[in-house]
Design a protein around this nucleic acid. Sequence first.
DNA 1: CTAATTTATGGGTAATAGTGGGTAATTATC
DNA 2: GATAATTACCCACTATTACCCATAAATTAG
Lengths: 153, 153
Amino acid sequence: MGTNTFTGEFHYSIDTKGRVNIPAKFRKALPDSSEDTFVVTRGLDENIVVYSLDKWRDKEEDLLKLSSIKPEHRAFKRQATRFASPLKFDGQGRVAIPGNLLEHAGIEKEVVIIGMIDEIEIWDPDTLKRYEETEFQLDAEDIEAIDNYTRSS
Amino acid sequence: MGTNTFTGEFHYSIDTKGRVNIPAKFRKALPDSSEDTFVVTRGLDENIVVYSLDKWRDKEEDLLKLSSIKPEHRAFKRQATRFASPLKFDGQGRVAIPGNLLEHAGIEKEVVIIGMIDEIEIWDPDTLKRYEETEFQLDAEDIEAIDNYTRSS
DNA sequence: CTAATTTATGGGTAATAGTGGGTAATTATC
DNA sequence: GATAATTACCCACTATTACCCATAAATTAG
């Protein structure tokens, strides 16, 4: 079997009912405990982020540790949950992504789906291209930092 | 079945009888022990907070731990309970929210309902927007603190 | 290389969700 | 105690969603 992680890039289109296919590879990588369910939410970039149900449960546990009295904690929790929704894929492996998320990512017809090891990103093709060209310019400092971070000790 | 937690955002309107729909997703997430009942009360923000009957029972236990001598504790306990009322939803999944709570949240016609994992918030759309924009923008310190708080896995 | 299987996509239909309103039962008011 | 107001409980309509079947392209197996 596979590696249980998400890798690779896939190009799909949304149909008239707003359904998007999830790559078979990714569906197979889901553990049983995720019950054929992905959790989609807003990304910090202009995209949609998808977690396995398992991974999302971990995130929820973290959020539950926050104080319910401190306003900043509540605000953070609210921001993290309000755009999240668990989606079970249908018999053909598709999910219907909520309209507000499609809007946030500027998705109309085509999507690019990218495996990010422990999560998945869904992009509008043009938006992604724009990000590649402008946003993602590593300077020397960034490279240094990332290099330190990713060197196995 | 589902995730048994509340997530996502929903936009509804109150009808002429003061009834508000509770998202079917949230109703389904209720355990049997909650007996089709939610407990609504004032939020610490300018909103209404909704608990499952189960969760509310836990809250009550927590409140009982407060000091009965310290005035601030009494005040907190009083504030938390005096506006709370259990509401059973009707056959169509709606509840009639008490007028004083609607007033507190500045709700007139439209509402935004937000899943907060273990509780639910009901907002007036404009009030929510105001909060997003002005009240609680997390600064770097807050993010650092929350990040530390939620790092464990 | 061909057949069998899987994948991506399209569409039909039954079930459900959200909304509005009627009426009987209950409570409050005079 | 009669009447008004409120609440609880139905019934109905519409749009959306969930679930199923179908097909063509792509992939895998023999």
